[in-house]
Design a protein around this nucleic acid. Structure first.
Lengths: 156, 156
DNA sequence: CCCAAATAGTTACACGGTCAAACTATCAAG
DNA sequence: CTTGATAGTTTGACCGTGTAACTATTTGGG
């Protein structure tokens, strides 16, 4: 009984996470469509902007890993985003082999315009939960994510 | 102080979910590579198998929506998976316009072979949390997912 | 009952995103 | 200094995808 109840609960949780991944994917497509971008281009731009909002600059190889492309395809993708005026390449000064990718302010504004209303709503949802529960969920998600990433690394 | 602490917590949670979506995406790519499939093909197959494991059969249009392709591209994709021997089309009897997609047992076995070890590990992680916390996280995730899907629907 | 509109899926074609391989540039270690 | 490793670029071929036109089926109204 307890085992079977746990299994059902686990499956519900994993299914909820899967549903979120699909929703995330769809929102990325929609954001990209608004800028006339292909799926992978949109995903890349979101990654670049997300990193930038946290004060980090992605290298090309970091970006390649996050969007699941080879170096060649990523270079090509960056060129397209650069040609569209959304980003620019910057050669790193400490290691001249490395390129970092920087998004323009106008496209950052577009990202916020698209996602900020959603974040407001999610804030409203989350504010109805007690802070210690949020912290526990955060911890659980971090552990789940780390477990998945470890497993993924082992399959390479 | 409380507002700023909440915002940081909210952002950590959203970042955790984003990390999960990326990990999920990467695992899908790896599963697909093991079967010689392209990214979208792998995603589609996982959706078909996931539904089937829950006793449901996806229609082509449901699949199209889940993987974010047009009807034409989805039909083409299904043809390729069918040609590879992974699935078959079944015309629905109650509405002859509708096709449902059924995966073969051998590919279902491959999915479990790939993902079951990960599910075991995730079980171990989750079993260290109290059942009422799991239920609360489940509820939180469901609400977050529903909010995202509602927002997404509004952007169409 | 009939017809028109709506719905679900198929087909064909052109475009362009991606991989793989070969390449250039740079760094690190011996 | 040389060699091997690392990061990114370029090129060409392949094939996945969107679009538009189409076929088949269902639904609703007159």
């Amino acid at each position: 009984m307890a085992v079977s109840g746990f299994d059902a609960q686990r499956d519900r949780l994993l299914e909820g996470l899967h549903g979120h991944a699909l929703a995330y994917s769809e929102l990325g497509r929609q954001f990209g469509a608004a800028l006339g971008l292909h799926v992978t281009e949109a995903n890349a731009l979101i990654e670049i902007l997300g990193a930038q909002d946290r004060g980090l600059a992605l290298t090309q190889s970091a970006l390649a890993q996050r969007v699941g492309l080879t170096a060649g395809a990523t270079s090509s993708l960056i060129s397209r985003l650069e040609a569209a005026g959304h980003i620019r390449r910057v050669r790193d000064t400490t290691d001249r082999r490395v390129v970092t990718v920087h998004a323009n302010a106008s496209v950052d504004a577009r990202l916020h315009e698209f996602f900020d209303p959603l974040v407001e709503r999610l804030s409203a949802v989350l504010s109805r939960y007690p802070p210690d529960l949020l912290a526990e969920c955060d911890r659980l998600l971090t552990e789940v994510g780390a477990t998945m990433n470890d497993y993924s690394r082992e399959q390479r």
